[in-house]
Nucleic acid binder design. Sequence first.
DNA 1: TTGTACGCGTTATCAG
DNA 2: CTGATAACGCGTACAA
Lengths: 359, 359
Amino acid sequence: MGKRPTMSDVARLAGVSPATVSNVLGNRKPVEPALAERVQKAASDLDYQVDRAASRLRSGKTNVVAVVVPSLENPFFASLVASIEMEAQKDNYDIIVSSTNESDAAEHSRVSALLSWRPSGFVVVPTSDRFSGRHLLDRSGIPYVVVDRAPPDQPADTVLVQNTQAAEAVGEHLLDYGHREILVAASSLDLLNIRERSEGVRGTYERLGQPLPSLVEVGGDFETATESLRLWLLTHKRPSAIFALTNVATLGVVAALSRLSIRVPADVSLVGFDDYAWMRAMTPSITAVRQPLIEMSKLAWQRLRSRIQGADLPARQFKLQCHLDIRQSTKIVGPSLVQGGKVGLLPLSKTVKAKRNRS
Amino acid sequence: MGKRPTMSDVARLAGVSPATVSNVLGNRKPVEPALAERVQKAASDLDYQVDRAASRLRSGKTNVVAVVVPSLENPFFASLVASIEMEAQKDNYDIIVSSTNESDAAEHSRVSALLSWRPSGFVVVPTSDRFSGRHLLDRSGIPYVVVDRAPPDQPADTVLVQNTQAAEAVGEHLLDYGHREILVAASSLDLLNIRERSEGVRGTYERLGQPLPSLVEVGGDFETATESLRLWLLTHKRPSAIFALTNVATLGVVAALSRLSIRVPADVSLVGFDDYAWMRAMTPSITAVRQPLIEMSKLAWQRLRSRIQGADLPARQFKLQCHLDIRQSTKIVGPSLVQGGKVGLLPLSKTVKAKRNRS
DNA sequence: TTGTACGCGTTATCAG
DNA sequence: CTGATAACGCGTACAA
């Protein structure tokens, strides 16, 4: 109960000045070991913890970063937050988490509100390609890193995945398995990364002279996605394979197919995006593009930390490679449609090639 | 770029005193409309945001709560954080999120570190029944609410679910479907809530004179759970139904069964815990106990907020009811083993009865 | 090692 | 009753 102890309380108990306590606890200046010990003991006896508000006010240092994501319900963002938190914790940073519920306006207002913390940095997954929090961040001078969705126009530190290449690999995989008529289930084409995925497969089919994939937008949440998919399937010729561009879309496809008693992969093959335990656990296991979530977080954090520490780096865009895990949900339905030896033999687990590259 | 504007900057621009700016922005004291407007304009022209550190230092108010969970990778806790964040946002509170990685020591040190923020309150899911952060929280005098896992001994505000009743309902459901030999897949029996679930089914089987369930501890992560389950199934007589006590255990069971080509529900029935989209999406859909996550969060937040606002309430324990969603993964294998009309007819979606009750 | 000014809003006090 | 002035909260940084 009662009020929390202050540094002066510790100082009094240890019989030293507040300044010394500050020096000991922040090990800023060398202090006589004997004194240091007394101070430490006094501090722990009182369960004393430096007040970050006071500390920040004087020193300007906070050790906190704000993390802004479109939604915490989406397991992809949840996992992202989880691994960023882990990285931050290693460096003794805390994170303030905020979700924008997929609203541009909310993004703006959340960023604005979070600025009042004067955080050391921001990690942002923009809600849309408009990235409406950007202006505020730029004006603030606080370093930030954008993850997953590329900001338009001006460069900024950005950590993305090679969506196009990953989708091309999926296209090749499906062609190699003999699939000619495929359906692409996108969440929303408003997002650049989704468009890249969509155009990736499309490009592959186009280049190889195959019929272009059909495309359906299914929305961002599970229920909607399921229903959209179900409707589409009821009103169109059944494709031989479906490529879902997000984890939610994947789940929607699985549910829709299940409801329509369409079997995977007997009746239709399925490739998902994002890789979650349930995709591996279920029967059939789902062939899916795995995003390097941990690497993304590590890279984003590393970059942000450098900037926080004052490094003067040019804005850079990182594009990490994805990985296609081929599992049971894709079935060979005919001879390979991939010409030449180009992709003659796909390894069971195919790595989408490409390395980091500059913006 | 550059330094952030201060309240004095705004005051100067608006031609008033800093105190007036403070009064306007915090609408604390009535201020002439004309002046107020000038101040608002000046503030927004400068993108001014009050510095929370300075504000807290003087006023003692923070509008931030710390949320401590065992793991952010676990979708149950991730969802919990998501909905708490949503509640908090409505009341203009930010949340600082921290995970203990299922370590008691980390829980203690995380709580200790978070105290340096002087948050308005804590929401804690204890890592273990030891609840090693408790001492610190009690000494701090900061209000806190415990969620999901009950603290031992002394009462504290706690929001739980009726684990026993939920598990009993699962027992009745399985008996009603004619299942005599069942296996309970627990994560770890170190946790009271898991023991309650385990003992719930066990109790039901015992009371009705049926063979007691077998029990296997499968650990807290997916891979381990899958392997433990696989091993158990290889070395024991196959049960007619499996009840998994957590979402991770459920996933592990699904994966193990899939790997062993044991069909659900043809060869074995399955009841899971926690309710996620993938359980509904897959074929067969998984019969599962749904925890009222949103209600839990709302209640926890409401309670915490009352305390933050100074309400002097006696510690209380809330136990919310769960819901058993009967789906395709449980199959009738024989006549009902539930005597009398007691549970003669189970509705397709059975609600585990019981209401909130006092500690 | 310590005294002390300082950072930036807030609040109590005071003036108009 | 409105608005300004000044003290204050609690660590930190710099001079002593």
